[in-house]
Computed example of a mutant assay.
Amino acid sequence: MMNLKKCALHTAVAMACGLGAQLANAGATISFGEDKYISAGFGFITSYNSVEDAAANGSDRSNDFTLDSARLYLSGSFNKYIKGMLNTEKSGGGSANSNFEVIDANVQFQLTPEVAIWAGRFLSPSDRANMAGPYYSMGGGYWANIASRYGWNGGVIGRDDGVAVVTSFMEDHVAVSFGAFEGDNIFRFSGVGAQSEANGTKDKLMYAGRVQIDFWDAEPGYYGTGNYFGAKDILAIGIAGRMKKDGVVSTIPGVVGDYKSYSVDFLLEKKDVGPGTFSAEAAYYYYDTDDVFLGEQGKAYSAGLGYLFNDPVGWGKIMPIVRYQKFDADGLTTAASVNTRTSADTKRFEIGANYVIAPYNSVITATYGKTDTPAASSDNFFRLALQMQF
């Protein structure tokens, strides 16, 4: 007889997929016996945004409520060796014409406790910001989309169709992953006509890998998180890279280049620093498009600080945060794929606070910030976001 019970969805997902960090979502699990189950849940991020000079008249502040993300989660298990998951997302980069699409659809073959093979659609090995995503960052649906460009532009919200070997060593203190992927949507939301595959071009695979070392507490699992909200002491560094031969295709006939990107990320989180937990994150990125798209080529940086107070205030705990991102592009690329070598920095600075009711599952975030782009004047913004997962 099936046993319907309440449990942590991502506890099930962790067992199914090795997502050791993401033990957060409350959901329902139907058990069919030992190591056989199906789990289901959902999550969403909605926000109020007010941006300087963004109203329809071009001079007043905008006032908009937006459904930034909506996801359905499914995971299952045949036995302790074969697991799988299916997740969906409201896609479209936040546009009004968004559709639901599959972001995760994969199977994991756990060959040994330390070695697994993932196949299907999933997050390819990459930087911590991409592996964590908006639900497992420093809170409030944070997208590191200025610096972590593949996480936003590439694949299906950072996902790709392919296969990867996922391994861990030294009691999960060292993690290594490497895989081959389709890589046909590297510049999905770039908005400059950039392509990674087109008619008449070669069909090459994209290769991606990541190595992560944890010096304090271990981080078991493949999908990661950007903040543990005081659950662990973390001192970690990760190195990631990806490349695709002939992976940069201009709309100008015959203009094709190779795509490469590299990143180094750092996370420190320490409990009992005064009356709370201190966290610091930083990352460096390098993007190379073989000079085909200067607007997607260059160096990027991101950094963030947070401090979670131990004592609750009402339902949750207060966590002041500050974040900075910069993408120093080598130039500008127009929609006609014409390059111009000029200063093309994009920067964003944010300061605010999380109200953490339940880590990852219930977080309210308020931030005030400023975005500088090459194509427009600087605009300040206020954002109030609600993140919920069930």
Rank of each mutant, 00 (worst) to 15 (best):
K326T: 07
L268N: 08
I234S: 06
G295N: 00
V156Y: 15
S196I: 00
A344E: 06
C7G: 15
E296K: 07
R61G: 10
Y81Q: 08
F278E: 07
L123C: 05
A282P: 05
G314D: 06
I38M: 14
P374G: 03
T46F: 14
T167P: 10
F266V: 05
I364F: 15
N87G: 03
R128G: 03
A116F: 04
Y136N: 01
S263L: 04
A24Y: 07
Y285G: 03
D53L: 02
I239Y: 13
T371Y: 00
N106T: 06
W315N: 09
C7K: 08
N25K: 09
C7F: 05
V107E: 04
Q212T: 14
Q22F: 00
E350W: 05
T88V: 07
D35I: 03
T346I: 09
A55Q: 12
K232G: 12
I252Q: 15
A116L: 01
D160E: 15
V363A: 02
G224F: 00
S69I: 04
Q297G: 03
Y207C: 09
F181E: 02
G92T: 01
W152C: 02
K6D: 08
A132D: 05
G179F: 03
G193F: 03
S279Y: 00
P253V: 02
S148F: 01
A198S: 15
S337V: 09
I318Y: 08
Y355W: 13
Q110A: 11
L9W: 13
I103Y: 02
N361D: 15
E281Q: 10
G155K: 10
Y81N: 11
T46G: 15
T29S: 12
G18M: 02
S343N: 13
T29Y: 02
S378I: 12
G352W: 01
G304Q: 10
Y37I: 05
A21M: 13
G241T: 13
Y324E: 03
Y222A: 06
D288C: 08
V166I: 10
T66S: 12
A208E: 04
N3L: 12
R242T: 01
A40F: 14
N310P: 11
F293N: 00
V163N: 06
E52P: 10
